[in-house]
Amino acid sequence: MAYREFTIEGRNAVTEAFRSGRTVDKLYVLDGCQDGPVLTIKREAAKQGTLIKYVTRERLDQLSGTGKHQGVVAVAAAYEYASVEEILKAAQERQEPPFVILLDNIEDPHNLGAIIRTANLAGAHGVIIPKNRAVGLTATVAKTSAGALNYTPVAKVTNLAKTIEELKKEGLWFVCADMGGTTMYDLNLKGPIGLVIGSEGEGVGRLVKEKCDMTAAVPMKGNIDSLNASVAAGVLAYEIVRQRGLA
């Protein structure tokens, strides 16, 4: 399957993309541009909750494939996002306790793609990512997922901490990957669960971590002190798989 970035440029094309209901991950706008058509595009972006980045003309020229961006470039999702409700419904249809992977501060598309692939193989019912400070479903993510994106729903939410609160009402417990946490083998990871993974550099944000019920550490015997985010997700996901198999 061939993958390509969905970059939309030019004022009319970007406006129509928003009005047609197309999912747009990011909108790049020429810094300082405040004329009518651009303000209209920014209003449409705000309605959809699209992340807006103000950049230089040089940056827009780099993003543009035609050189006729007119001060605006939109990056649309390569795949459509699911809803959190659809993820829970997938668990219900499989008659399994929900298993969801939530990602905080993951900005590397290769990490996101690899985690979606792991989520699929580990039997997770879906992946949840935040709108801000995170990569969306780009073509690179789709390619790295090795086809898993066709089968594993990914939801995008405005507030990860609030989403955790809402999922707790549905009976889920949450475990956060943290080097300072309890060794994963000493935790009960059975039942309805959400696994929260952060980036290598920043980890899981404080507000999100505070919403979690447990913190889990992967035992490490080497000379460095952290795992790649996608590897950590894989190790913890398969400990959850192991424990669910013992239930």
Rank of each mutant, 00 (worst) to 15 (best):
D25M: 11
R244W: 02
Y3P: 03
N132L: 13
D108P: 06
R22D: 11
P153R: 01
K169L: 12
M179G: 13
L227S: 04
D31A: 14
T56W: 05
K42G: 06
L30A: 09
K209E: 14
E93V: 14
L39S: 10
G194N: 01
K26Y: 09
K190I: 00
L27C: 04
S64G: 09
E200N: 08
D104P: 12
H110L: 12
L187Q: 11
L160Q: 05
V127R: 00
Q62C: 10
S145T: 05
A78Y: 13
A46L: 07
V84T: 03
K190A: 00
V127D: 00
V175Q: 00
T40W: 02
S199C: 03
L60A: 08
G123Q: 02
A45T: 05
N105G: 06
F99L: 14
E202H: 13
R19C: 01
L172Q: 01
V141I: 02
I129N: 04
V218S: 09
A216K: 11
T15E: 11
A78Q: 06
E80Y: 05
I224S: 08
V24S: 08
E85Y: 07
Y79P: 05
A247M: 15
I128C: 06
A217V: 07
K131M: 03
I193K: 06
T215E: 15
K143I: 09
T40L: 09
N223F: 14
Q243R: 03
L160M: 12
K156Y: 04
V14K: 09
T152E: 06
L102T: 08
Q243W: 04
M184R: 01
V75S: 12
L172H: 07
V218W: 00
C176K: 11
V141C: 04
M179L: 11
M220P: 12
G171H: 02
W173P: 00
T215Y: 09
V72M: 01
K131Y: 06
V204R: 08
T144W: 09
F99R: 15
A124K: 02
N12E: 09
F174E: 04
R244S: 00
L172S: 00
S230R: 12
V208F: 10
E9Q: 10
R117C: 13
K211D: 00
A146V: 09
L137M: 11
D178E: 14
L207G: 08
G191M: 11
P37K: 15
R242Q: 01
F6V: 15
M184W: 04
Y79V: 04
E96C: 03
V29G: 02
E80Q: 14
A134E: 04
L121I: 01
K47S: 13
H110T: 10
A237T: 07
K68W: 07
G136E: 03
G181Y: 06
M184Q: 07
V231I: 15
P192D: 12
V218Y: 02
V135H: 03
E239Q: 10
L187K: 07
L102N: 01
E170I: 10
R94W: 01
D61C: 14
A90V: 06
E80S: 14
L187M: 10
R94T: 11
F18K: 05
G245T: 08
G203P: 12
R43S: 14
F6A: 10
E200M: 09
A2C: 12
V157K: 13
I115P: 13
L167R: 01
L30D: 03
G36H: 12
G136P: 15
A139Y: 05
D178C: 07
R11K: 11
Y3W: 08
